[in-house]
């Protein structure tokens, strides 16, 4: 399953190579052209000779992770976060460092050595380190270096029902959905854009949108689902199992109404379940894409994921499949020449 391969691949912002190669291998035979741009975005296209609105589909390849900032005398590694990670979830997690995936564990002072005040709050990054089992700086330096990135070691797994567990569903889910979409014939000129550096500030998508200059854009994301105990229903944002979530507004985007309406119609015609994203928090590549050049009408399809940005997120394969149906139906059937044109 491609989603498994993508989820298990390592790809912190700026180190998306592994993910890029998986995608390239998977879709090269299905697309007209495929190339990597200056920023590292992987761009493929199909049906460029057709008429109709040039459509850009986007998913980001990078995931949240860590970067080594210093190697201590005793061989332990200091690190910083790359992208938004809750520091409470770091301690005692197994990580893979660098392109060779050197295994290590995030360590901290044992509980009996902690002051009473320290036990009451999450451990600060400064008091955590990655331990790769090296006993000295010189030994550690043989396999890692400052600037190496680290990701959580986390195997993809399907539970007995249709739930899957794994890391980096934000946004390998979108990457997997886009690769599926790339295998069917779109009705209009379509660009499949796998962006870099989303988690550090939507940096890759800006250049891609500028150079492609599409007429419309759809971002495909793994988004947060907060349908968990201790949260009131009105703060769920999205709910697992209720289908793809469509964005009306988030922190960085107000979706194009005509485009959103077309997505809704597509879902309803195909009996595909959907929900709205019920929060204005959060943002994604669409935030910069829609403000590129003279403006690009944009919308977002998100797959709800619990425990996002953590070592193990949970997603419902039914939501994944419904999202795939919606996206494919949209680019192969609904999108009509002229209707969303410049």
């Amino acid at each position: 399953m491609l989603l498994k391969k993508l989820s298990e691949a390592s790809g912190v912002a700026s180190r998306e190579n592994e993910v890029r190669e998986i995608i390239r291998d998977d879709i090269s035979d299905h697309v007209e052209d495929i190339y990597t741009d200056v920023m590292g975005n992987l761009i493929a296209c199909r049906s460029t000779e057709k008429s109709g609105p040039v459509t850009m589909l986007t998913a980001h390849m990078d995931e949240v992770g860590l970067m080594i900032t210093n190697i201590r005398k005793d061989g332990l590694l200091d690190f910083m976060k790359v992208g938004g990670i809750d520091k409470r979830i770091l301690v005692s997690k197994v990580v893979n460092v660098g392109s060779d995936g050197i295994k290590g564990v995030i360590g901290s002072k044992a509980i009996h050595l902690q002051k009473k005040s320290e036990r009451k709050k999450p451990i600060d990054i400064d008091n955590l380190y990655i331990d790769i089992g090296a006993t000295s700086r010189s030994e550690a330096k043989k396999v890692v270096n400052a600037g190496d990135t680290a990701v959580f070691e986390s195997g993809f797994e399907k539970l007995d029902n249709d739930m899957v567990l794994g890391k980096a569903f934000d946004d390998r889910t979108g990457c997997a959905l886009l690769t599926e979409a790339a295998k069917i014939e779109p009705r209009v000129p379509t660009y499949y854009v796998f962006t870099v550096q989303e988690e550090v500030g939507l940096r890759g998508a800006r250049q891609a949108a500028y150079s492609i200059d599409p007429d419309i854009s759809i971002v495909v994301e793994g988004t947060t689902a907060a349908d968990v105990p201790d949260n009131e229903e009105h703060r769920y944002s999205t709910s697992v199992g209720e289908g793809p979530a469509l964005t009306i507004r988030d922190r960085s985007l107000i979706s194009s109404r005509p485009l959103l309406q077309l997505l809704i119609e597509t879902a309803e015609r195909g009996n595909i379940p959907y929900q709205f994203r019920r929060t204005t928090a959060g943002g994604n590549d669409a935030g910069v894409i829609h403000l590129t050049r003279e403006g690009i009408p944009s919308a977002v399809i998100s797959v709800p994921c619990r425990y996002i940005h953590s070592p193990v997120a949970m997603m419902d394969l039914n939501d994944y499949n419904s999202s795939a149906d919606l996206l494919k139906k949209f680019i192969s059937e609904t999108i009509e020449e002229g209707k969303l044109n410049k």
Partner: peptide
């Protein structure tokens, strides 16, 4: 204010725009 949720009792929850 954008409506995010409708409660059983008919009250609306919202988020600022």
């Amino acid at each position: 204010l954008m409506i995010t949720h409708i409660e059983e009792e008919g009250f609306l929850r919202f988020t600022p725009v």
